[in-house]
């Protein structure tokens, strides 16, 4: 099945180097996403899930003091063997990203239409503003924005968070990327708006056949969203497998703790979880893949 893989990460290590020495924060991540597959990376803050997505995006490699080892293959090509320019060429064309807070992620002094224009220039450098806006209006209607023209003529601060999230989704998909990275999408939004926009995102991704790497700490949304789940703890993958298997039969102590941490609507107070536990450091558990 390797030929079908859009993304393949092997033994990925990441270290930050500063005057005090080197601190390793990722200790050998293995991860793969098949074409059209939706994969979730879950874990607490600081577990390394966001930096993993930034390495896939190729921006982490350019930060001073960052050392990356291991292989990240996008569609068969190792990112480490690409030049800075080639990696940048992928971004916005083949790989795209949705951020945590859509309103903060949209430039405050450019109109939405201008941003859409710039994004489409990544695929077609000669595209005219009106053509880009017409195309943008189309995709905005796909993400259930009725008055697309008004939105394109607005600045991000004039729109609601939910509206901006739809804009973000449209912007991320307008160039038909093959891989979409979503880093805690909509965590800054309230729960109802978040679920509406996630539903839209799921629908669009399925329709376009885009592969998805979904980074989240919210197991509730992940369950609805992902085909497979990787659970991350302190720079390691501790458990991986199909979504159903992880939820129905969590094997690693950390995954169990994470699942137990979801507060129930039926009450019972905030669940108590150990801050640290030796058991969390147990080796990875791999659920057998379900082959159809």
């Amino acid at each position: 099945m390797p030929a079908d893989r859009i993304l393949e990460v092997c033994d990925l290590r990441l270290a930050f180097r500063n005057w005090a020495g080197t601190t390793e924060v990722l200790h050998g991540i293995d991860l793969a996403i098949a074409k059209g597959e939706r994969v979730a990376l879950v874990g607490e803050s600081g577990s390394g899930k966001s930096v993993t997505s930034r390495i896939v995006l190729g921006t982490m490699q350019d930060v001073p003091g960052v050392q990356v080892a291991g292989k990240v293959r996008f569609d068969g090509t190792d990112l480490a063997e690409m030049t800075f320019k080639e990696r940048r060429r992928l971004r916005g064309r083949e790989i795209s990203m949705i951020f945590q807070d859509p309103t903060m992620a949209l430039n405050p002094v450019f109109r939405i239409g201008a941003l859409f224009h710039e994004v489409q220039k990544r695929r077609d450098p000669t595209i005219r503003r009106d053509a880009a806006c017409a195309r943008a209006a189309e995709i905005l209607r796909e993400v259930a924005i009725e008055d697309a023209e008004r939105v394109l003529d607005s600045y991000a601060f004039q729109l609601s968070g939910g509206m901006n999230q739809r804009v973000m989704i449209g912007m991320a998909l307008i160039n038909r990327p093959r891989l979409l990275l979503a880093d805690e999408p909509g965590t800054a939004l309230d729960v109802t708006v978040q679920s509406q926009t996630l539903e839209l995102m799921r629908h669009m991704v399925a329709q376009y056949g885009t592969s998805l790497l979904f980074v989240s700490h919210n197991l509730g949304t992940v369950r609805e969203f992902a085909d497979r789940i990787y659970v991350m703890y302190r720079g390691n993958i501790v458990e991986r497998g199909p979504t159903a298997a992880i939820f129905n039969n969590p094997r690693h102590p950390y995954t169990r703790a994470l699942l137990a941490a979801i507060p129930r609507l039926t009450g019972g107070g905030i669940p108590e979880i150990a801050e640290r536990s030796e058991a969390f450091l147990e080796p990875m558990f791999i659920h057998p893949e379900v082959t159809e």
Partner: peptide, 29 residues
């Protein structure tokens, strides 16, 4: 440090464009 600059990088906008337009214009105020 703003998320919108990270977004510009994530979409492959060049550092030159970021420095001349996307980050420059908001900083000008």
């Amino acid at each position: 440090e703003q998320p919108h600059v990270e977004m510009a990088r994530a979409y492959g906008f060049s550092e030159r464009d970021i420095s001349r337009r996307y980050a420059f214009k908001p900083s000008l105020i």
